[in-house]
Amino acid sequence: MISPSDFLSLPFDDWVNIFVRDWLVPNFRPVFRAMQWPVTQVLNGLSTFFNATPMLIFTAVLSLIAWRTSGRGVAIFSLIALIFIDLIGLWPETMTTLAMVITAVFFCVVIGIPFGVMAARSDIFRTILRPILDVMQTIPSFVYLVPIVMLFGVGVVPGIIATIIFALPPIIRLTDLGIRNVREDLIEAATAFGATPWQMLVEVQFPLAMRTVMAGLNQTLMLALSMVVIAAMIGAGGLGLTVFTGLGRLDVGNATAGGVGIVLLAIILDRISQSLGEARAMRGPSLLATIRSLFSLRANKPPAEVERAG
C-alpha cells in the first residue's frame, strides 16, 4: 500500500530536539533558573516548618483542623492515620511530601486564580487558554520531565515545577467556570449600583464563585499528590522517593508502605479541602468564634435554623 510517508517524512523529533536543546536551553536557562527562586523559598520555609514541628503537636493541630472543618469522623481518621504513618517509620518523608504538595498547590493558586479570572472576563483569552490547558492535562508527564531537567536541573524544585504544570488546569478551569456561572441578575445589580470591575470581582463574582473555586482547589491538590512518585524520578524526595526506590529494588514492602502513606495523606487533605468548599463552612462562624468554641467544654451547636419566614 502507498502511504504519504513513502514520499515525505517529517523529522518532527529533530525539530523538537533543535528547539529545546539548541535554542531554548542555551538562551533561556538563566530565566528558568530564576523562576525556581520563589519556589525554593516557599518550599524551604514549609519544609523546615513541618520537619521542625514535633509529631504530636502536628498531629493534634491537623486533627483539630479536620474536626472544625469536616467533623468528628474525619478528625479521628486523621489522628489514627498520622499515628500509623509515624509507626511505620515514614514521618519525615510524609512531612517532606506535604511541604512539596502544599508548595505546588500554593503556586497553582497564585497562578491559576488570576488566569481563571482573566479567562472568565475575556472570551479571547479563554479561547487561547483552552487548548493549552487541554495539552497540559492530557500530555503524559514523562514527556516534559526531560525538558524540565534540561532547563531546571535535577532535584525537588524541578519536581515541584513538573507538579505545578500537571496540577494547574483544574483550578484555572473551575475559577473560570465559577465566575461565569454567577447569576446574571446579581452582576446587573452590582453594575446598577456603580461597581467598578474590581469591586464586581471582589464583592460579588469571586465570593459567589468560591464554592466552584474550592472544588478546583481540591482537584488540584489531588493531582499534585498523584504526581509525587513521578516527581521522585527527577530527584524529589519524600514518600514518592520511598515508592520509587522500593520499585527499583523490587522491595514490595517499602513501596507499599510509601503508597499507603500517600493514600492516607490524600484522604486527609481531600476531606479537609472538600469541606472548605461547602457552603456551610463558607458562612460558618468566624475565626474568633471558632477559637472560642474550641475552648468551651462542648462544641456550641449553632442554634436550630432560624424559622423560615412564611
Binding site: 441578575d185 464583592e203 459567589l208
Partner: peptide, 9 residues
C-alpha cells in the same frame, strides 16, 4: 429588581 437580585453571600 423583579427577582430581588440580593447577594446570597
Amino acid at each position: 429588581f423583579q427577582h430581588f437580585a440580593l447577594f446570597p453571600h
